[in-house]
Amino acid sequence: MKIFIQVVLPVLVIFASGYGLQKWKKLDIRSISTLSLYVATPAMVFRTFYETDLNIQYMNMVVFSFILLFLLIFINKIYSRLTKQSESLESGLILSTVFMNSGNYGAPIILFAYGEMGFHYSVSILVLHAIMMNFFGVYYAARGQAGIKTAIKSVLEMPPTYAVIVALLFQWFDIKLPETATSAISLVADVTIPVIMIVLGMQLAEIKLKQFKWDKIAYGVVVRLFVSPLLAAGIVYFFQMDPLLEKVLIVSAAMPSAATTTLYALQFDAEPELVSSITFITTIFSILTITPLLYILG
């Protein structure tokens, strides 16, 4: 109960405030999310990569993430073949079970649970997962329509991608920013997590649940909230990692479906109702699964 009150509850309260605000005022989410994507998140990402001493742990993080990605895709393909699902439904299941909400949900949970060092790892995971989702997510949502070309374009349109590149160049060439610049960047970066949490609550308020396919939703919940963290725990066993990074990776893998995938599903007509349903239900059910996982990991 202590973990729930200190770590999970504050996050849920902020989500709920965004949800309630959107139900009440019907704001333009696109404007707020654009502010987050183009201003706040790049500032946070730049500060993290500018200040962080990159080492082998970050390479482990990249390798881990790709192994988990391909394992989850493989599981979905096996399930789709065995149950004779259409390509569209297979794409919808991949969107809703492979890509986790490591940004809006995972980053604040990890910040509350593991402090600043865990949060630094979480921001790196956030950027990596966003790039992977913008490539592989778009590819699976749009296959047969736009495919790889659209996926590459999607990655190149992400401002945080360039924030990482610039920060790494500053590190490699030992370029020191003046204190006024770092203070300004930090001021903007500090608002990122609250803003993206509120945006998630607003996005959940906009999800329209019409027709529930309970067998597919149950499958999505099991894969996203149970199979994914179990796979993550198995993968980290074979790496020599910082114990804190191990915990951050497992907790990130246990996050509900990424809200962004609903946008891809809508844009490319990849079972949008199913993806929205799984996103909503996994977010609700994660309240029951995150707390015991944090307790088990310590």
Rank of each mutant, 00 (worst) to 15 (best):
F173D: 07
N134Q: 14
F268L: 06
V199F: 07
A167E: 08
I131C: 05
T291D: 10
F70P: 03
F66D: 03
Q85H: 15
A113E: 04
D190R: 05
L126A: 02
I185Q: 03
Y295K: 13
L230C: 09
G298P: 02
S80A: 15
L82Q: 11
G106C: 03
T279R: 00
K208E: 15
E116G: 02
L168G: 02
F135W: 04
S252L: 00
D190F: 00
R81P: 01
G20Y: 14
I110E: 06
M1P: 11
N55Q: 11
A167H: 05
L225I: 11
V236S: 06
S102R: 02
A130I: 06
I32Y: 12
I67P: 11
I67H: 11
V39D: 00
S154V: 02
I165W: 04
V166F: 10
T289K: 01
Q240N: 15
T261C: 09
N60M: 08
M241R: 05
Y19W: 12
Y19T: 01
I296Y: 13
S257L: 07
T261D: 06
H129L: 12
A130G: 13
K77G: 06
D269H: 12
A130Y: 14
V275Q: 01
Y58T: 02
Y219E: 06
I67E: 14
L9F: 15
Y121L: 09
